[in-house]
Design a binder for these strands. Structure first.
Lengths: 343, 343
DNA sequence: TTGAAAGCGCTACCAA
DNA sequence: TTGGTAGCGCTTTCAA
């Protein structure tokens, strides 16, 4: 038989005092007589009393909770960011409720609805791959629910945003390949509709144009983030009559199967093809060849995201300023792009 | 100015009907007049009404929520399992609340307390690396709160458990190395107090003994899961007067830096050292050399875990049966352990 | 088919 | 320093 949880009422009855007194004692209010307090505390301990957070939140109509809507926690990028978000939130006295969209627009709307039902006070969202309509986010804004978009954002949305300068980062990566002597540069992109993918392509095209190397649509392949597809796209790219001698991949998760496919095809990296990608996952440092990658300041981004959100939550009358915070990235150069010891 | 969320009371007032009627209409109870229902639905839609889950749960004293306590979601193993848990839970009509312990015993107790405050109806726990005392879990059992331990369990705990046969898996991995011609086999273990680490060591020792190859304490190194330490331990292992020609690593996350360290040292894998590890992370298939690894049926384990937990939740009077469900593992053989085309 | 009222566990106000 | 009471938003009897 499951004994239902102890309530303050139980404690009050046992001690022959009122529930208000118990409530006050438990919360350490100063006006309570030490003796009473001790008795309450002791009994609470004995009965292993756990305050009912639901009831607490209901009456205060505050949950001190923020909701996180991420595409998928098995991407290292998001799980690492979640870790930092939790830490910052805890420091600010908030707890976090996490949901995963699995890159689906429908699940994204469901996740957001569920979080609202649970009365989170604000949301941190990274849009899913398949999110085309933005009505669900716009609705949040209309209802004046604090929202911060991080990493995967939408340009048309006037929310607060925390991102990196994707175009500059891609420029930097491409430029690096060019300086390593690459003449024709390919790009393994993500799904075409991902803003982030488009931005990185822009940076890549800009660098190629500026330095006058071969690049462009015929050197771009869109991958859907599965390794099978990535291998197909990589082989397609490397089978061009004039295959690239340098490739930028949109993420390490794309780069791993791509490197594998190249090596299977007998290409040597970086001698035949130099490679740079994005995200700098921990494994990249141990891959063979070790993988050059653009590193994002995940922890700082998380901190800033939480800071901005909490500020919005706690200053509702200020309105949304719709700031966009842009972080710088860092190119970590490793073997996969290093051709002759020259950086 | 933040407008507070719409409640059924607001709807009732607008429509000049009672809140009970609104409540019933919203929940689609059959006795409501279609006209009334339509009016309610329409207004709810217009006002973008979101039911307050806190209030709902409070009155029903059921949350239909299960709590998950995992060491760290940036381990692929746990994030993959979380994904499957969420899916199974959703199918069973439950939602999940996730927390991370960051491998700390203290945070583990805090996570559990928070989940209980949020009135989760059951818990799925994978113990943290630093968990030595088990009083917090025992307390849960005494309070008859449904708990299922998964993967990282404790032998002394009479909870329901879902695990793999770690000893058999390690035996299988070691045996495979032996059949590939390895004479001296090393083991890169996890922290000494991890039960799972001990079990895998046992399997390794058993196989070595059975086949009469060199192995044992001087061939075992405990890694703390940081890559720096793993590299140190690997180099220490490979610097033995008679270094191993085969190594079992306790997880892919340990194997990656280990492989890197070996290659840096000029050792060729698998020619000089063959290598097998555990977890079969997606990257392992693309590593160079591709990494042989023990694969666990994560999705099935998650399904079974949820099934067992939900059963306990919904049949409280049956008591805890403290079953231990043991899943089989599969050795995925790749280049890192394949010496001469012979499996 | 609808409404009134009690109550889930808690906080907070007003009195005492 | 304490108790009584109202009410957070909802569901659920019991009556009408």
């Amino acid at each position: 038989m499951k004994n239902s949880p102890v309530t303050i009422k139980d404690i009050a009855r046992s001690l022959n005092i009122s529930i208000s007194t118990v409530s006050r004692a438990l919360r350490g209010m100063p006006e309570i007589h030490p003796e009473t307090r001790n008795a309450v505390m002791k009994l609470a301990e004995e009965l292993d009393y756990q305050p009912n957070q639901l009831a607490k939140n209901l009456v205060k109509s505050r949950t001190k909770t923020i909701g996180v809507v991420f595409p998928n926690l098995s991407y290292h990028y998001f799980s690492a960011m979640l870790n930092s978000i939790e830490e910052s939130a805890m420091q600010a006295g908030y707890s976090v409720l996490v949901t995963q969209t699995n890159e689906s627009y429908v699940r994204e709307t469901v996740c957001i609805e569920n979080l609202l039902r649970s009365r989170v006070e604000g949301l941190i969202i990274s849009l899913s791959r398949d999110t085309v309509h933005l009505d669900h986010v716009e609705k949040l804004m209309k209802r004046e629910i604090p929202v911060v978009l991080v990493d995967r954002t939408a340009e048309s949305l006037a929310t607060t945003r925390v991102i990196v300068d994707n175009q500059a980062a891609a420029f930097k990566a491409t430029e690096h390949l060019i300086k390593q002597g690459c003449q024709r540069i390919g790009f393994l992109a993500g799904p075409a509709r991902l803003v982030l993918s488009r931005q990185r392509i822009d940076g890549y095209l800009k660098a190629a144009a500026q330095y006058g190397v071969v690049a462009g649509e015929q050197y771009i392949r869109n991958c859907d983030y599965t390794s099978e597809n990535t291998i197909v796209q990589t082989l397609s790219l490397m089978s061009l009559p004039q295959p690239p001698d340098g490739v930028v991949a949109i993420s390490d998760r794309i780069a791993y199967p791509a490197l594998y496919a190249m090596q299977q095809k007998g290409l040597s990296v970086p001698a035949d093809v130099a490679m740079v990608s994005f995200n700098n996952e921990p494994v990249s440092a141990f891959f063979s060849p070790t993988l050059s990658s653009i590193s994002q300041p995940i922890a700082e981004m998380a901190r800033e995201t939480v800071r901005l959100l909490v500020h919005q939550i706690e200053n509702p009358d200020e309105g949304v300023r719709a700031e966009t915070i842009v972080f710088d990235t860092q190119l970590i150069i490793r073997e996969s792009s290093l051709r002759n010891g020259v950086v």
